[in-house]
Write a protein that binds this DNA or RNA. Structure first.
Lengths: 234, 234
DNA sequence: CGAGAAAACTATACGCCGTGAAGTTTCTTC
DNA sequence: GAAGAAACTTCACGGCGTATAGTTTTCTCG
């Protein structure tokens, strides 16, 4: 037995990384469907079966890719959020939203991989928890909601959300980070999330294309309305 | 040459209908991926290649199915809209939205077929216009927006939407039907559409499942917020 | 150093898929 | 009843994921 820094382990890690990288390249050029073990192997000068030494199944590979892509998304939106001044909640929502849409437009295949039917037969692992990066995105939105809560809270005055309405795993991550956010605040986060995801999803899948020719303007206006409806004009 | 009512033509129509019906059954039980020519043929006691006499390619069949499924959706939401009293715009939005979500929950595979990556290699026909039923859905939402416009109009006071911001084909259908709806009203329609589609899409694809355990309540509250933000409490 | 174990990889095979080409059966029409 | 069209089958090709078995390379340890 050798340490984790041995030559063998290093080669293994490199091959694993190359598989992921080739898979992502194939996805970028041919869509999620282009992720086939045989194509990856062809590209790498290997046999398709050799990949089974690194990933138990194609779905395992896809799961790994989803995590990887999800992380780049989380990085992008987190960075945009952090760049905006903390004193301007509306500006942070705008920055976050634009980063989200910008990432999606720049990585449409990645967006489909994460948020759509990723790949022919792929099924989201049943029992497995959502990828960490997914929680990062949620946490990012929760931060937006928490900052907006002082303004938007009254809107939820007569709502009856309970902690038990939400996923326990999510709350475990959220409540320590945002101790002042009530259950309705989580609902507010989901509202922001649903709104932004909905628009971008429509755009990426081309359902907006047959309706408006300036999704850019629509998104900007939509964002303004969302922020206004939160009671934080800035 | 025989008339369109001949025996041969009838048999042909029946077979075509059976192919579509079997394909829909397969989709309902195994998801969009289960739509394979070979499976359909197996189910019908035919050879896969026989289907080529009815559909030039598998994508052609999928396109037909999309139209068919889209029509059932349009029927469902139109009916719900018509059932609600015209004097209550908010009620009509609620009815439409609930019908939309209800249909999606009852036909998740259909929803994915229409609004997601439909089927492995399928590509939306490039030049072809959107299916008629898609315009029916748009028109339905436009009706909601038109009814809400007297209340929600002021929100768009300082927006600068032009007719040229929207798809000409869409406007051809919309403007005659809703002569009083200004460009910003179309943006309002897209807003409603984006909001509802976003929520339902998140739910159908399971991205809500890791966050809330009561999407029902969330949707109801969300709907209330949407209607409130339009200025039509009822 | 050299033998044996372990890891990496290849070869072959099975059943699935869409689809093209060619041949066969069945029905329609004159 | 014969000609012809339409419906359908058979065979074939290349693609896919993946299971099994065999081969080559590499590392470890006496």
């Amino acid at each position: 037995m050798e340490g984790t820094g041995g030559r063998r382990a290093r080669l293994r890690a490199e091959t694993t990384a190359e598989i992921r990288q080739v898979a992502l390249k194939l996805m970028a050029s041919g869509g999620p469907d282009a992720i086939t073990l045989r194509a990856i192997a062809r590209e790498m000068g290997m046999t398709a079966n050799a990949i089974y030494g690194y990933f138990a199944t194609r779905d395992d590979l896809v799961t790994t890719l989803i995590n990887e892509v999800y992380t780049t998304l989380a990085d992008a939106v987190d960075a945009a959020w952090a760049d905006a001044p903390a004193a301007d909640p509306a500006g942070r929502i705008r920055a976050w939203a634009r980063a989200f849409r910008g990432w999606a437009l720049a990585n449409p295949e990645g967006f489909r991989l994460i948020y759509g039917d990723p790949v022919p037969g792929y099924q989201v692992p049943e029992g497995g928890a959502a990828p960490d990066a997914a929680y990062r995105v949620c946490t990012g939105i929760a931060a937006l909601a928490a900052a907006a809560w002082p303004h938007a809270g009254p809107l939820y005055a007569d709502s009856d959300f309970q902690w038990s309405d939400f996923d326990a795993g999510l709350l475990d991550k959220l409540r320590p980070a945002f101790p002042d956010l009530p259950p309705a605040g989580v609902a507010l986060a989901l509202r922001i999330w649903g709104h932004l995801h909905g628009l971008v999803s429509l755009e990426i899948y081309g359902h907006l294309r047959t309706q408006t020719i300036s999704p850019d303007k629509l998104f900007r206006e939509e964002l303004a309305q969302l922020i206004r409806s939160l009671g934080i004009d800035s």
